[in-house]
C-alpha cells in the first residue's frame, strides 16, 4: 500500500490526521497534508482508507 498526499489539492480539513494520526500530519506553517509513512503496511489499511474516504478534496490517495 503506497500512500500519497497531494499538497496542491489539500484544503487543510485535517480529516486524515483524525483518521490515521500515525500516517498523516499537517505541517506547522501551512497546515497542509504531510505523509508520515508512505508505506504504512497492511495493518493500517482500514484507517488509511478512512482517511482517503473522509478527505474532502481528494488529496489523500492510496496506490
Amino acid at each position: 500500500m503506497h500512500v500519497t498526499g497531494d499538497r496542491e489539492v489539500c484544503v487543510g480539513a485535517g480529516q486524515c490526521v483524525f483518521a490515521a494520526p500515525d500516517v498523516f500530519d499537517q505541517d506547522e506553517d501551512e497546515g497542509l497534508v504531510l505523509v508520515l509513512q508512505e508505506y504504512p503496511g497492511e495493518a493500517r489499511r482500514e484507517t488509511v482508507e478512512e482517511a482517503a474516504d473522509t478527505c474532502p478534496s481528494g488529496a489523500v490517495r492510496i496506490g
Binding site: 487543510g12 485535517g14 499537517q26 501551512e30 497546515g31 497542509l32
Partner: peptide, 13 residues
C-alpha cells in the same frame, strides 16, 4: 483559503 488554515489545524485545536 490556505492563508487561514494555520489557525484551524488539528494541532492548533
Amino acid at each position: 483559503r490556505r492563508m487561514t488554515i494555520p489557525e484551524f489545524t488539528v494541532k492548533r485545536m
